[in-house]
Each structure stands twice: as C-alpha cells, then as structure tokens.
Computed example of a mutant assay.
Amino acid sequence: MQFETPNGPVTFDIHHLVVAGWTGRDQDKVQHHIDELAAIGVAPPSQVPLFYRTSANLVQQSDHLEVLGAGTSGEVEPLVIHAKGALWLGLGSDHTDRPLEAHSVAASKQACAKPVADMLWPMDEVKDHLDDLELHCDIRENGAWVTYQTGTLSSIRPLADLVTAYDLPDGGAMLCGTLGAIGGVREGEAYRMRLTDPVLKREITLEYAMTTLPVIA
C-alpha cells in the first residue's frame, strides 16, 4: 500500500492486521460498556484490552464500502503501522457488522473491510504529544451530517502500550480503539473522519460512503 507522509510517499507491504478492542483508559467506562453489551447478548471480553486478529486484506484505501445487510457501522480509530523498523500513525475505521457482533465479536470484525486514510505521520513526530491529538467522526443520516464521535487520544490507552502488549510485527497494522458514539452506535449512510494534530497544525482525513448489499436466502 502507498501512503503520503510529511517527507514524501512510502510503500508498505501490510501482511498482518489486528483490531484492538476495549482500549479505553477509563476502566469504569470500559466496564460500563461491557455491561451494556452483555445486556443485549454480546459476550464479555476474555481480557482487557483484547486483540482481534483479522485478515490483512481487509485494509482498504477506498472512498466506497460494500457491506452485507443493514446494521453495520464504522468507528474512527488511530491506526499504527510497524514497517521498515519504524512506527507510523494514521487513521482508519473499524467497520463492524453489529448484528453479527451479538454472536461473535471476532467474526463481526472479520466481516467488513477496514477503510484507512492514505496519509501517515512518523510516530517520532507525535509521540511526545499523542494525548493532545483529536479524533472526530461525522455520519450522514437522512442526508445531513451529524457529529457521531469526538475526543482526544487521552481517552484511549497509550498506543505504545498497545503495540508492545501485542508485539506488533514489522509489516503489521493495528486499529487501536475508539471513542463513545454520541446518540448510540448505529449505521450511517457515509462517514467523514479526521485525526487532528493541534501542536503541529495538521490533520489526516478519511471519508467513505456505503452500499448495502441485499441479504438473500
């Protein structure tokens, strides 16, 4: 895959993808969310955080996503790539099949492609102010854009801790967790996301629309 960086384009072969779940830094909020999901039939995680290995070919640089049936939804997440001996920070969406999630979270992660932005920052450039970086996601509902998620990386476990805990290999990519959904988790017609660095005055953006494929039997 090819990415733009502040120092020019780079090309990486991504052959390992993992989705980190339950990565909130406030453990009371994490437990509250676990309890909420348990009430609707989603099994609690075996450990916190939990790392879901998924197919590397789910990573896509695309502005259009095809999904099977209603009920899927995206989540804005920091993306960490370990490539050529260095760590890079980007932006991605852990698009997930929510009805399937009630049966198996792991299967729900595997069911949808994971759109990622085509821009990366060297981790060394942001590691001293990671908690200040801002995540934001809008969704389009009934033709209008509404704020769906917003916050800073200070609400997510330190990214270096997640990478170390999983031992992310060279050629690996990790989606590192997300923020609470304003108004509840739900499907959108399209997604518009950004990762903003208020210190270095720059941002990474990601936008994609969805086509829902019919479920037939």
Rank of each mutant, 00 (worst) to 15 (best):
M1R: 10
T5S: 06
P6K: 14
N7W: 14
G8L: 13
G8M: 09
F12L: 07
I14R: 11
L17M: 11
W22C: 07
G24T: 04
V30W: 04
Q31W: 00
H32V: 01
I34C: 01
I34Y: 00
D35E: 00
E36F: 00
G41N: 00
V42L: 00
P44F: 11
P45G: 03
Q47S: 04
S55F: 08
S62M: 10
S62D: 00
L65Q: 09
V67T: 13
G69I: 09
G71E: 02
G71H: 09
V76N: 01
E77R: 05
P78F: 10
W88M: 14
L89T: 04
L89F: 08
L89I: 04
D94Q: 01
L100S: 03
L100R: 07
H103I: 08
V105N: 11
V105P: 09
A107E: 13
Q110C: 09
A111N: 11
V116N: 12
A117M: 13
A117I: 12
L120D: 09
L120M: 11
E125I: 01
L130A: 13
D131T: 15
L133T: 10
H136F: 11
I139H: 05
E141D: 10
A144F: 00
Y148H: 14
T152V: 03
A160T: 13
Y166M: 03
T178H: 06
L179I: 04
G183I: 07
E189P: 01
Y191N: 06
M193Y: 04
T196L: 13
D197F: 15
V199I: 15
V199Q: 14
K201V: 14
L206A: 10
A209N: 12
T211C: 04
P214L: 06
V215D: 05
